[in-house]
Design a binder for these strands. Structure first.
Length: 525
DNA sequence: CTCAGGATGAACCAGCCG
DNA sequence: CGGCTGGTTCATCCTGAG
């Protein structure tokens, strides 16, 4: 209990940064560290098209055309605040993050305090202090001088390390708290058919439901990212799983959830585990010197024709077997682009329907949108069997179905997983920015589901009051599920691998914000 | 204007070897 | 321990066609 309070206070330090010295600017509840974390900003409801309609099988969508002007106003407001913060010596990343956390409406001084508090926390963590010490530090830091000193230290430290947003830290000291080694083999707490030790865990009190929650992102994020995500998500140990242990394609992902880990059961039939089991017909043309048994991670872009042409040209102009140098080149290209052998000397990228199959989606799930869009949507999706294995424990717990808040829904990997598990979805409130993805989910929903689907376009627009309204209307949520954008974390990103504070990946903080808002609203029921 | 396709490394880790 | 090599990675930018 004590620990819970400490923890809450620490999070308050890190997220909301309500300092004593700023009470002149209208801080809301400064009463200390009592739960819930989330607080109500204002009374005016800022969502539209609320008709209270609750037809079974019906759909609602929050249209945003009438909010366009407001959107523009918000954008210019945001730009103005970013400029002000930059003038004060903060980086654009820091400004963006503060606005993400506190909201665009937040007063400038609140934003400044938010940045300061996160810097304090950084110092605390970089000094490898215990939770208790961190809490004490944060407590102290709001006094004034000490905070200024810590912030100064933090700034100097950052300057010394290059100040990049990529989390570049010297890894020389072995006591680095930020490092989070990936397990080998990457099988999570347990996997079907895996004869290793099964992991049991004890969740921190604050982490337990309701609601249950399930968060996903790429395992190989830049240094320090998973440590930070873990810190926000109640210090729950992530479950790192490479889906190649379950299907024919690799997918190294980290999952943080508060679900039970005992008595899981896989989807049946088990998916094909090797390339040849999945696509027997490719055996015919597969050269013996290409010894891949699994495909690499299915990504959002496919190989251009020039790659496959070069491969064909090199192979046809050399003997059989080709010289080692050619083999090496071709193997490398095939691994990099996930090519399969579809003819003599002919390697080709996967078709969208093959990706659907490997990822555990029904055939033609993404059909109807452009091919490029299908690749993109599939590359950004869950591996259904992996997620379903984790979610399978819900089947026995919710015989009457579940109420789901689905953030960053994409093409509905979580929903498909629940459906394939035979878990009825009474309600899904889905937040997804991509029009094509919403269309894909809607089409699947109409064909397979009888529950209520509510569609929202932008996580940023989902505020406390609207969440509270949904919680009241449906009596709460049983599951909050979602994987926040990995764009700025993924290794494939050549341009903006900016870490958790990147333009898209910082939406993680909205996942965190919304999850806490749901917890808070449900606690007040 | 939209759209599809082609070109575009770097970060991180693990293993090896001197 | 440090340098080297190899493997892997839910992507973005630009251009030209329509």
């Amino acid at each position: 209990m004590i620990h819970g309070k400490d923890r809450l206070f620490r999070l308050r330090c890190e997220i909301q940064a309500l300092g004593d010295d700023d009470d002149a600017v209208g801080n809301h509840s400064t009463s200390g560290c009592n739960p819930p974390i989330v607080e109500d900003d204002d009374d005016d409801l800022d969502f539209e098209n609320w008709d209270g309609d609750d037809d079974t099988g019906g759909r609602e969508s929050s249209s945003d055309d009438s909010g366009y002007e407001e959107f523009l106003r918000e954008m210019s407001d945001k730009d103005e605040k970013i400029n002000s913060l930059r003038d004060m010596g903060f980086s654009e990343d820091e400004a963006n993050m503060a606005i993400t956390i506190c909201g665009v409406d937040a007063d400038l001084s609140v934003l400044v305090d938010s940045i300061s508090a996160s810097q304090v926390t950084e110092v605390c963590h970089s000094r490898n202090l215990s939770d208790h010490q961190v809490t004490a530090r944060c407590f102290d830091s709001f006094g004034g001088r000490k905070r200024a000193r810590l912030i100064e230290e933090s700034k100097k430290k950052r300057k010394r390390y290059g100040g990049g947003a990529q989390g570049k830290r010297p890894s020389s000291d072995g006591s680095d708290e930020e490092s989070m080694p990936l397990p080998k083999p990457m099988v999570g707490f347990n996997l079907p058919g895996y004869r290793g030790p099964s992991m049991t865990r004890v969740l921190p009190e604050l982490a337990t439901g309701p609601p249950y929650f399930y968060y996903e992102n790429v395992a190989r994020a830049p240094k320090g990212v998973w440590a930070k995500i873990t810190r926000f998500l109640f210090d729950i140990q992530p479950e790192f799983v490479d889906s190649l242990h379950l299907c024919a394609a690799a997918r190294k992902r980290g999952y943080i959830h508060n679900l039970p880990t005992e008595n899981r059961s896989p989807l049946l039939p088990l998916p094909p585990k090797t390339i040849f089991e999945a696509f027997p017909h490719y055996k015919k043309w597969w050269p013996s010197w290409d010894q891949r048994t699994h495909l690499n991670c299915l990504q959002t872009c496919m190989a251009p024709a020039t790659v496959t042409e070069r491969i064909q040209q090199k192979l046809s102009s050399s003997g059989n077997p080709p010289p080692q140098s050619v083999q090496k080149y071709v193997r490398h290209e095939c691994s990099k682009w996930n090519l399969v052998w579809v003819g003599k000397d002919k390697a080709a990228p996967l078709e969208p329907h093959e990706m659907e199959y490997l990822l555990g989606f029904p055939k033609d799930h993404t059909r109807g949108v452009g091919k490029t869009q299908r690749y993109k949507s599939l590359g950004n999706s869950f591996q259904v069997d992996t997620v379903a294995y984790h979610l399978s424990v819900l089947r026995g717990m919710f015989p009457n179905g579940v109420r789901v808040l689905s953030l960053f829904t994409g093409i509905g990997g979580g929903e498909v997983a629940l459906h394939k598990l035979g878990i009825h979805m009474r309600v899904v409130v889905s937040v997804e920015i991509g029009e094509a993805n919403r269309q894909i989910l809607r089409s699947w929903w109409d064909q397979t589901q009888t529950g209520t689907l509510i569609e929202i376009a932008d996580v940023k627009s989902l505020k406390d009051d609207e969440i509270a309204t949904y919680v009241r209307r449906f009596g709460g949520f049983d599951l909050v599920i979602g994987g926040s954008p990995c764009n700025n974390l993924a290794g494939s990103n050549r341009h903006h691998r900016d870490g958790l504070e990147g333009e898209h990946s910082s939406l993680f903080y909205d996942y965190f914000r919304i999850l806490n808002s749901v917890k808070s609203a449900m606690a007040n029921m």
